[in-house]
Design a protein around this nucleic acid. Structure first.
Length: 418
DNA sequence: TCTGGGGTCCTAGGACCC
DNA sequence: TCTGGGGTCCTAGGACCC
């Protein structure tokens, strides 16, 4: 049995944790640079606020309905995520944190211990709410895709109240026939439209297709989804937890950048983020892509990328920073108003099997990076930086509606007045 | 006045080589 | 004179997710 536990409009719910005065109000959270709407709380959803629309296009509508607007406060969301995941982990010995607000649980040999999955799901919900004030939905299913579907039902379909179980034919039919096919994990808008043409409109319609036929008409991914919807597991626990094949850090600037120094500081900062994530999943970077671009909405769209190959795969932030700084003059073109830039590790290797270079000494220093990560984990990721990342760079993102740093700054810690 | 997210994976097609 | 295969690497773009 699998379970998927995830939060209801996570970012918006996080904003409500330390500010009870907005709990009963419509709340939306904006993406980086306050560009688009990326989280809509249930109250705002009922007003008809769409997800992923550019903020400036919907500004007036939000003002008219007194919607509370917040910029993304990632430090807060990351801290609350850790708390939430720790609570959930107590309920299963096999947890995989899939994203900032989702975790899969695999229950092996639990059938003797748990006789009422429904009650168990509510136990998890109550504990998370009590300890973090975050609302979560819990979906149980015999395959990961069914657990996802059950989670959808738990949160979105009337009558489920936060917990759903899909483990037999009756519950499969009940849940899948009430789900649009695009609510199935792995079926997006494009595939949805093509499936609709074939009169496949609900999850149940899709489950009743021939998997083989779906493969020839669409892809191996759709074939797998059909099987999963029928209780035939295709995604193993190892598939879900597989290390990433690529790791990127990219961002648009708070204000346009047109000098090479600023561009370099931004790129080195992205390099540091990528390196940190790579160390977390115990990989090493063999090849790195470094890119910078103007906006695709500009008249003369400019986009330049360079691939750097390390002779010895590395996870060392200093080595990566040096490599980036060495190519900045091939990336930078005077006169371009840069809109975004980024760095991506596009070829990764396992750090257990490091291939050394016979002809050059390795400058990797695992102890240094271990110490560096230790300090940043303890005091926040900005505590220790490479000098080339710069200090207080003007390109940092716009966050006009930022909530206080309730969990990471002494001055912002909530006060209780008696 | 201007404003348009970020991450991951996959594939088609072009360039190049033998 | 004309036509032919298969591999690798790279890039751009599509698709999906949140």
């Amino acid at each position: 049995m699998y379970a998927l536990v995830d939060a209801v409009s996570y970012y918006a719910s996080c904003e409500k944790v330390f500010d009870p005065s907005i709990r009963n109000k419509p709340v939306v959270v904006l993406t980086n640079n306050d560009g688009c709407i990326c989280a809509v709380c249930p109250i705002a959803r009922r007003l008809g606020v769409p997800k992923f629309k550019p903020y400036f296009q919907i500004k007036h509508f939000l003002a008219k309905h007194n919607v509370v607007i917040r910029s993304s406060n990632y430090e807060l969301y990351a801290d609350l995520s850790e708390k939430m995941m720790n609570v959930i982990a107590r309920y299963c010995d096999n947890q995989y944190v899939y994203s900032i607000d989702e975790s899969f649980l695999q229950f092996k040999h639990y059938s003797n211990i748990i006789d009422d999955w429904h009650e168990y799901g509510h136990k998890i919900r109550r504990a998370v709410w009590k300890e973090t004030r975050l609302p979560v939905g819990v979906g149980f299913g015999s395959t990961p895709t069914l657990a996802k579907a059950a989670n959808h039902a738990a949160k979105k379909l009337p009558g489920f109240n936060g917990v759903a179980i899909v483990d037999d034919d009756a519950s499969r039919k009940e849940v899948l026939s009430r789900m649009s096919v695009t609510d199935v994990w792995g079926i997006g808008n494009r595939l949805g439209k093509r499936l609709n043409v074939l009169s496949i409109n609900t999850g149940w319609d899709l489950a009743n297709q021939s998997a083989k036929l779906m493969r020839t008409q669409f892809s191996v991914v759709v074939e797998r989804t059909v099987n999963e919807l029928n209780g035939i597991a295709c995604l193993s626990w190892d598939d879900i937890r597989r290390p990433k094949k690529e790791i990127f850090s990219t961002r648009s600037f708070g204000q346009r950048v047109n000098d090479s120094y600023s561009l370099n500081t931004a790129l080195v900062s992205h390099g540091a983020i990528v390196a940190r994530k790579v160390r977390q999943q115990q990989s090493l970077i063999k090849r790195l892509v470094i890119f910078a671009a103007s906006s695709p909405h500009d008249d003369n769209y400019y986009n330049k990328s360079i691939i750097h190959e390390f002779s010895v795969a590395t996870d060392n932030t200093l080595t990566i920073a040096t490599a980036i700084s060495a190519v900045i003059h091939d990336i930078y073109l005077s006169g371009v108003n840069y809109y975004r830039c980024g760095v991506g590790a596009i070829e990764l290797t396992n750090n257990q099997f490091m291939q050394h270079d016979m002809f050059s000494a390795s400058d990797d220093n695992p102890e240094l990076m271990h110490c560096y990560d230790g300090i940043n984990n303890r005091y926040g990721n900005d505590s220790l930086k490479v000098a080339a990342e710069g200090i207080n760079e003007k390109w940092h993102m716009r966050r006009e509606f930022l909530s206080p740093s309730f969990t990471s700054k002494w001055r912002d810690i909530p006060k209780i007045e008696c």
